[in-house]
Amino acid sequence: MALTIAVLAPATFASTCEKPVYLTLDTGHMGVAQYMADVLNRHQVKVTFFAANERTKEGDGSLGNHWAPWWKARAAEGHEFASHTWDHTYWRADLPGEPLRFRVRASAGPSEGVERTWTAAQYCEEIGKAAKRIEEVTGKKTLPLFRAPGGKTSPKFLAATRECGYAHVGWSRAGFLGDELPSETASNSQLLQRALRDIRKGDILLAHLGIWSRKDPWAPAVLEPLIVGLKAKGFCFATLRDHPDYAAWVARAR
């Protein structure tokens, strides 16, 4: 008797898996971007990319023309996309008075390192600029989500950005995969072992498409064994479109 194997569509697979995790990848210097894309494709893992126009090892920024074909290819593979702000602009503090204003500082672009004061509308415009560019280069609508650089926020900040249509996404404690940490104090083997030990069902995982400050790149040593190890423990990978905290928000925004 012939054996029939059913191939489930990604959304169906995510809904039937009992132990989903949600891998999210923020932009960076993009030096390991193609390697990471190859690993994800090889293991049929779909992720959510949070993109900003950051300085890169080659090309004109992570959302520039040089990297546009790379993003378009990821869209064709079925990944999801959301904003990480255009110039990787950090919320620094709420400011007193009305209207609501924030102190911000970008780590990319023409105002890199400069402290500025923005209204909520200006910060929302910064989120929207990255979202629009992602849609231009991928041909795919971005999720109505964003990640503040460094995960830095305040209740007033989150309320304001939600009011203009963007829900904020952080990461789980065990989901901090450590690729931003110094190699000297957090080796790749230590980070892999910790992740495989601590990650639990429903966790949002965070890594980057290249970190300038890390001596021993994380992705070539950790990404593939992490995926293989988590799958061996019964986990599956889904995008934030299917996350229970965001699915209804995403559906309403369509």
Rank of each mutant, 00 (worst) to 15 (best):
A106I: 06
E112W: 03
K132N: 12
G113I: 06
K140Q: 15
A148V: 05
K132E: 14
G109N: 08
G139E: 07
S111L: 07
T138H: 06
V137Y: 01
T119V: 04
F146S: 13
T119I: 09
T153S: 09
E112L: 04
P144I: 03
E112V: 07
L145W: 03
L143I: 15
S154L: 13
A108I: 03
E135D: 09
E115V: 14
L143H: 07
R116L: 15
T142L: 08
I127K: 03
Q122L: 07
P144Y: 01
K132I: 06
C124V: 10
E126G: 07
P110G: 08
I127P: 02
R116H: 10
G139D: 11
S107I: 05
T138N: 04
K129H: 05
E112D: 11
E136I: 12
L145S: 06
L145C: 12
L143G: 12
R105T: 09
G150C: 05
I134W: 00
P144Q: 02
P149Y: 04
G151L: 11
K156N: 00
C124P: 06
T117M: 08
W118V: 08
K129E: 02
E135W: 06
R133E: 08
G139C: 12
V137L: 09
R133Y: 06
T138P: 04
T117A: 06
P155C: 14
S107G: 02
K141R: 15
E115H: 13
A148P: 00
E135F: 07
G139S: 12
E112C: 11
G139P: 09
G139Y: 10
Y123P: 00
R105G: 06
T153P: 03
A130Q: 05
P149K: 01
S107T: 10
F157N: 02
A121K: 11
R116V: 03
I134K: 05
E115N: 14
A131L: 04
P110W: 15
S111Q: 08
P149T: 03
K156I: 01
G150D: 06
E125W: 13
G150L: 09
E115I: 11
V137E: 02
A130Y: 08
V114M: 12
L145E: 01
Y123V: 01
S111M: 07
A120F: 10
G139Q: 11
G109D: 04
G150Y: 05
S111W: 11
P144V: 05
F146N: 10
E125H: 15
A130M: 13
E112Q: 09
K140G: 00
P110M: 12
A131Y: 05
K129L: 05
L145V: 11
V114S: 08
L143K: 13
P144L: 01
A106E: 11
A121R: 13
Q122A: 12
T153W: 03
A148G: 03
P110C: 12
R133W: 05
R133M: 10
A121C: 07
K132M: 12
A108Y: 09
G113E: 09
C124R: 14
S107Q: 09
Q122P: 02
L143A: 14
S154P: 01
K156C: 00
F157V: 00
V114E: 13
A106R: 08
P110N: 12
A131C: 04
I127Q: 05
E125I: 08
R105V: 06
E112M: 10
A131H: 07
G109Y: 12
E135K: 14
G139N: 11
P149C: 05
R116F: 10
Y123K: 01
R116M: 15
T119D: 04
F157H: 01
I127W: 08
A130G: 13
